[in-house]
């Protein structure tokens, strides 16, 4: 269970998060919606440990453990995964090598045996098949020359391989055409189960047609201003943020 209480954070002296309260029980998928500049990406970065954000108050725990005190890699080992809004390019680094290094780092941290290249390839190919992606994905350099859709698919592939217990998807739907959106959504849905929870951050209701959330929260001005069931997303789409939040 992810529990955020009174979380405040600033960047360059400017307060972005102004007291976030949120609970995502294990096994549930929650959506966070909000207009530009409401603090959605900041929340995802603060939770995954990006440098440059100063946490000025509150707490965030995952299964009772304070995640804000951890290094990003420790959070990954604890089961946290951030699907980036803008996945980063790593020139010269092969995707297969990157993924296997990541997987083994996490396994090592958990005290599990490392996976050799052959076993990894087998695992990766199986995941690619279920995600309807080409094996080519593994041969290319990490995100280099990928289209926007391919980058997002690569994030989903990483998530499928690393098997996190909490995934934060930061506007994973942005820049996706409808087919890619379906593939990405199916990837997330395939992960759903009693031990997986997710925080889906999005502008639009569209994604939620494919990933039905258990709860929807509206983030505005650095606070959660309203929470509800999946129908809240439809309401937002129809009426706009300003009206719903008022």
């Amino acid at each position: 269970m992810l529990r955020i209480e009174g979380l405040t954070a600033e960047i360059d002296g400017k307060q972005i998060l102004k007291g976030i309260n949120l609970e995502v029980p294990t096994g549930e998928v929650h959506a966070i919606m909000g207009p530009n500049g409401s603090g959605k990406s900041t929340l995802s970065y603060v939770l995954s440990g990006r440098e440059g954000y100063e946490i000025t108050g509150g707490s965030a725990t995952f299964n009772g453990v304070d995640i804000l005190a951890m290094e990003p890699e420790e959070r990954a080992a604890a089961g946290l995964f951030l699907a980036f809004q803008y996945p980063v390019e790593l020139p010269g680094v092969g995707n297969a090598n990157f993924l296997r290094t990541a997987l083994n780092s996490i396994r090592k941290a958990k005290g599990e045996p490392e996976v050799d290249a052959m076993a990894f390839l087998k695992m990766a190919r199986a995941k690619l098949k279920t995600l309807q992606m080409s094996d080519d994905m593994l041969k290319r350099n990490v995100n280099v020359g990928f289209s926007g859709g391919e980058k997002k698919r690569n994030e989903v592939l990483q998530m499928a391989l690393l098997e996190p217990s909490l995934a934060i998807l930061d506007e994973t739907d942005s820049g996706l055409d409808i087919d890619a959106l379906k593939i990405v959504s199916e990837g997330v849905n395939a992960m759903r189960g009693p031990n997986f929870s997710a925080l889906v951050i999005t502008h639009y209701q569209r994604l939620l047609d494919y990933i039905t959330p258990d709860r929807v929260h509206v983030l505005m001005g650095g606070r959660i201003v309203k929470s509800g069931g999946p129908e809240l997303a439809l309401e937002l789409e129809a009426e706009g943020y300003a009206k719903v939040a008022a």
């Binding site: 995964f81 951030l82 690393l162």
Partner: peptide, 12 residues
Amino acid sequence: DQLFYCRSRGLS
């Protein structure tokens, strides 16, 4: 951002 990307995937 390259470093953060790698670290968020579990790399030291």
